[in-house]
Every structure is written in C-alpha cells, then in structure tokens.
Design a protein around this nucleic acid. Structure first.
Lengths: 223, 223
DNA sequence: TTCCTTTTCAAATCACGATTTCAAATTTAT
DNA sequence: ATAAATTTGAAATCGTGATTTGAAAAGGAA
C-alpha cells in the first residue's frame, strides 16, 4: 500500500504539482484530478503513492518546510543590520512569499490558507512552521521595542505587522476586480508593486511601534 | 417556482438560519441540510423558496446589507469627536463585528469570507457594501492625514488598519489552539479582549500614520 | 363543501470528486 | 530469460450534498 520507491519520478511530479495546486486553491478546493493532470499522472496515482489526498497534502507541507529550512530568505536576516533595516527586509521577503509566484512562495501560501481554513496540517504548522517565522519577527520587534521577544506587546505588534502583509494575499480577488493593472496574468504581483507595499508597511509599522518602547498593560489573563 | 408569499414564515426562518450558517462556515462549506435543520424546515424548502443555494445566499447578503444600512454602529461616527476618537470608535466597532456573535456581526463575517473566497456576491459587495465602510474609514484617515479621502496614501493606511482587525477573525482557529482561554464556548471573543485589541490597533495605527501627514510617493501607475 | 392555489414532506435523483479495482505494462532480481 | 515486485491506466464504485419529484397537507374563495 505504501510507496516502494520514495524517489519515484511520478511521486515527485505529484508533490510538485500538488504544492502548486494546493497553494493556489487551498486543500478543499484543490481537485486530485487537477493535480494528476498537471503531474501527467493517472487519476489513481495519488492514492497509490500517498494513500489519500490528505496524506499527499501533509507530505507537501513537510517537504516544503524542509526545503525552506535550507534557504528561506526572510529567515536569514543580516545580523549586523539595524533593527529598522531588518524589519524592512523581513516585510519585503514575507510579502514576496505571499504575492509572487513559484516554489519559494508555496509554503507561505499554504500557511496563510491554513490560518483561514485549518486542516490536519495546522498542527504540524503550529509546531514546526510558525515558531521559526514568529521567532524571527519577535526578535526584530523585541529589538525595536527594547523588550524580550516573549512580551505580550511584542506579540501584538507582530500580529499587526504580519496582518498588513497578509491582507494583500487575502484580498487578491478584490484587487483583481478593482485594480487589475496591478496583477500579472499569472496572478502574481509586480515586483515594483511589492516593493512599494513593503515600504509602506515598514513605515507604518516602524512609527506604529515607536511610542511603545516601554512595557504597558498586559493581555487580560482570565477568560 | 418563485415564492408567492415573500413574508412567509418559513422563508424568513430560512433567511435567518442561513445568515448564521453562512457567516460561520462560508458559502461553500455551509450545508443546506444544516440551514433547513436550524430553520426547522424541510430539506426542499430552500429550493422551493429561493430556487437554489446561491440565490438564498444572495438574498441573505442583500437583506443583511439593507438592515445594516438602518443601524450600523461603525457607520455612525460622532461627527464632533476628534479624529483620534473617531478612529478608536471605528476600530472597536469593526473588531466587534468580526469577533462577537449575533445578527449584527453576520454581514461583516460574510464580507471577510468573500474577500478570501469570492462568490457571485462579491460583485454586490464591491458595489454596495464596501464603499460605505471604505468611505467612513477613508474619511477618518483623511482627516488624520490632512489629505483628501481619495489619496493613495489614505487607501494604504485604511488597508493597514482593516487588516489588523481582520487578522483576529482569520486566525481564530490558531487562537483556539494556542490561547483557548480567550475564546468563549460560542466561538466569540470576550468583550474585554476585544476592547484590549481595539486599543492596541488604534495606538499602533495612530502612531503609524503620525509621520505621514504629508503627500509622498504615489502608487506605481503602469502594471 | 368543492375546487384551486400554495406549501410541506419523504424519498428519489443528480453531480461531482475521491477512492478502489484489477488487468496490463514495466521494472528488478535472480 | 523468467518470475516476482512494482507501477500505471481505464473504468467502476462510493460518499456527500444539492436538487427534483410527486404525493399529501393546508388555506382560501366560490
């Protein structure tokens, strides 16, 4: 029942095609017939190699996660840069991951989708994918606020920053109708537009945090 | 084929139940069997009264929109308040619409879902629902920046503000796993938590805009 | 009451997409 | 070269959920 040749060509084509389709459509709307079509594989190939659609999805998430551990540009922030520069780089890379096309953007898109519509992969992501990204963001913000990365205020600011990036991914369908000239035929944003948006988010966030560099009220503890 | 008694009791129960289910699950995941169950109606009632699931959905959106035109708290900002107060009120009300439970929150939730996963209702929303909300937000931000509401920078800041609210709706499933004590059994957020989050978003955004009160670079025009 | 319109109901049908089946093709090992 | 193991392919099956059907119930007007 399991795959006997983990390096099988068909198996790999399925993983690549599936990453693309899942990133574009989300787990539920992705059709395994679509995935097989793009992978030039038979409709039964997913079940033969992975058991079922969800296991394939899990395999995609893990594969992309491992690959991104190798080189994820927004995880390797120049340690000597100023915290302001670090934040700008982080935002630019994170926005790119959500708005560009290609393999390096797939895990980010899957993560954004899991947040809105969780599947079994969310547990994996909470454990393995989110902490490193969150850690980098908290490190930068903590530095900016002169606060430990675990401080509740740091968490709030990280949410504010990430949300500003994600909105452009989430509202892509609206942008397509109201500002179609900003989006390429392959549904990616233009690099110039991404750079422009990153600059705005950076400025907005830097100033947003400027006056917060002292400990203030805590999150309410009880429910 | 069409409904003969537009005020039919069953028809109204369907509209109410459908609004609730659609807001909670989104259009695709909502089951008409579920809606009929909650409306105490037969499984065929949706097709008898509305034709099909999508027409019911459209009817729900329009009904909620018309009702909200009557009294939507975040649309009626005290005109004499300072712009800072107006922003705080707007953010608190908008967050409430996304994080509380009850009829007044349903349209906001449907709008948030349409953004991520558009249906035929998106066109209606782009035309009728978004402009008023967007207009109020632009008015407040324009006042804060001493800029006309149509300025591109005003648009960017509005996106930054709305995104910070929406993230708490979008990541509810993660919050459920990482901070379950913040979310009530009925899946709503506690009023104290909402007020706390609104305070943070307001402060972050006010400071984020503080230094922008002069015209700067424009959105790149060409694609 | 009786006829006609409207509404409800349970059961059947449809549509779509995931999964299974099993025979044929291919690969690998001896 | 042959046999066993592995992989592929086309068609069949399943499951879920929306939609349709047609008979019964309910209402209303003569």
């Amino acid at each position: 029942m399991p795959s006997y040749q983990p390096g099988s060509d068909t198996r790999n084509r399925l993983l690549v095609a599936a990453a693309e389709v899942f990133a574009e459509q989300g787990f539920r709307h992705a059709r395994v017939s679509d995935i097989c079509l793009r992978a030039q594989a038979n409709i039964a190939a997913v079940n033969y190699h992975f058991g079922d659609k969800e296991s394939l999805y899990l395999a995609v998430v893990q594969k992309l996660d491992e690959e991104s551990k190798a080189d994820a540009p927004y995880m390797q922030i120049e340690p000597n840069a100023s915290p302001e520069e670090k934040l700008n780089t982080f935002i630019r890379e994170f926005l790119g991951v959500l708005l560009k096309t290609g393999p390096s953007t797939w895990l980010g898109k899957l993560m954004a989708r899991e947040m809105m519509e969780p599947t079994a992969a969310l547990d994996y992501m909470i454990e393995k994918v989110i902490p490193p990204v969150d850690g980098v963001a908290r490190g930068i913000v903590g530095e900016l606020l002169s606060m430990p990365p675990e401080a509740p205020l740091v968490q709030l600011c990280v949410s504010s920053i990430l949300s500003q990036c994600m909105i452009y991914f989430d509202t892509k369908e609206i942008a397509l109708r109201m500002r179609p000239e900003l989006i390429n035929p392959d549904r990616s944003y233009d690099p110039a537009t991404i750079a422009f948006l990153a600059e705005h988010v950076t400025q907005f966030s830097l100033h947003g945090m400027q006056s917060m560099a002292v400990p203030v009220a805590d999150m309410p503890a009880g429910k």
